[in-house]
Write a protein that binds this DNA or RNA. Structure first.
Lengths: 145, 145
DNA sequence: AGTATCTACTTGTTTACACAAGAAGTCCTT
DNA sequence: AAGGACTTCTTGTGTAAACAAGTAGATACT
C-alpha cells in the first residue's frame, strides 16, 4: 500500500494556515477598532515598547527579517505617525527608531488586542498541550535556523 | 508585579516565525534543486496531484485563500508551464485547472522536497509531542475560522 | 594619509496577500 | 422572456516578503 503525501495533513501546511489565521485575525481586530496597524507593524511596535530607540539593523535581527523589509516597513510606519527616525549622535550610518507620543499612548490598547487574539486562538485548548505545542514550535525554529 | 506581554513568548509570534522558517526553507530547497517553484505554488500543485481539473474557486476554498490571490497565483504558474486553464464544457464562467506533462513528471521530486523539509523541521522532536502540536494547530484553526 | 574592507541603510524587482470593485455568465422567478 | 440575484473570475490598490545590487559612512591596515 502506498503511503501518500497529503498536504492537508502535513506539519508545514497546518503551521502555515494556523499562522495565517492568527495574523489575519489580529489585522482584523486592529481594523475593527479603527487602528491603522498591521501585524508586522505591531511586531516592530512591540519591540519598541520593550526598548525604545533601537536601530533598524537590530529590529531586523530580533524580528528575523532582512533589512530591506524592515526599512520599508519603517517607512510605512513613519507615514502613519507611529514612529520616527532619529540620527545616531556619532555614527551617521545609523538610524535610531523611536516611538511617537501617539504610539506610546496606544500601547495598552494594541497589546489588549494582541492578547485577545491569542486567547481566541487558544480557546478551550488544554494548558499543558498548549505548552507542549509552544515547545515544539521553539524546537522547529532551532532546527531550521 | 506586572505580568508584561512579551512578543517573543507569545503563541502568535512563535507560530508566525516557525511557519515562515518552514516556508522559506521549502522555497530554498526548490531553488537549490533548480526548480522555479514557491511554496504557495506547491500548495496548488499538491491539490492538483490529489485531484486534477479543479476550479479556481475550489482551489481557493480548500487552500483558504481569496479568489484574487488564487487567480494571480495561477497566472504565474501558467507562465512557468506548471498548469493550464481549460474552459468548462457547459459553464463559461468556470476555468478548470489542469496539470501539464511537465508538472506531472515532477510530482515525486517536488513531494520529496516537501517531506524532507518537514523532516528537518521535526528533527529530534518526540513523536507524541509532535502529534499534540498538530492537534493544537487544528484546534487553533477551528477556533479562528 | 590612502586604500581596502566592513557596516547600515536604501532602491529595484518579483511574488503573494487582503480587500474592494467590476465584468461576464448562469439561474430563478414571475 | 425579462429582470434581478447569484456565481466565477479578473482588475485595482496597498502592504509586505525575499533576494540582488547600490550608496554612504566607519574602520582597519600598511
Amino acid at each position: 500500500m502506498k503511503n501518500k503525501y497529503l498536504l492537508e495533513e502535513s506539519l508545514g501546511y497546518k503551521l502555515f494556515q494556523a499562522s495565517r489565521l492568527m495574523t489575519n485575525t489580529l489585522n482584523r481586530h486592529f481594523k475593527e477598532q479603527g487602528f491603522l496597524l498591521t501585524h508586522e507593524q505591531w511586531q516592530i511596535l512591540s519591540r519598541l515598547y520593550e526598548k525604545d530607540g533601537q536601530t533598524q539593523h537590530e529590529l531586523a535581527r530580533i524580528n528575523e527579517k532582512d533589512q530591506p523589509s524592515v526599512s520599508r516597513l519603517i517607512d510605512n510606519m513613519i507615514k502613519r505617525g507611529l514612529i520616527v527616525r532619529k540620527a545616531h549622535p556619532s555614527d551617521k550610518r545609523i538610524n535610531l527608531i523611536y516611538l511617537t507620543e501617539c504610539s506610546k499612548q496606544m500601547e495598552e490598547e494594541y497589546t489588549a488586542l494582541a492578547i485577545q487574539t491569542i486567547q481566541e486562538a487558544a480557546f478551550e485548548i488544554d494548558e499543558k498541550e498548549l505548552e507542549i505545542c509552544l515547545q515544539v514550535l521553539d524546537r522547529i525554529r532551532v532546527n531550521l535556523k
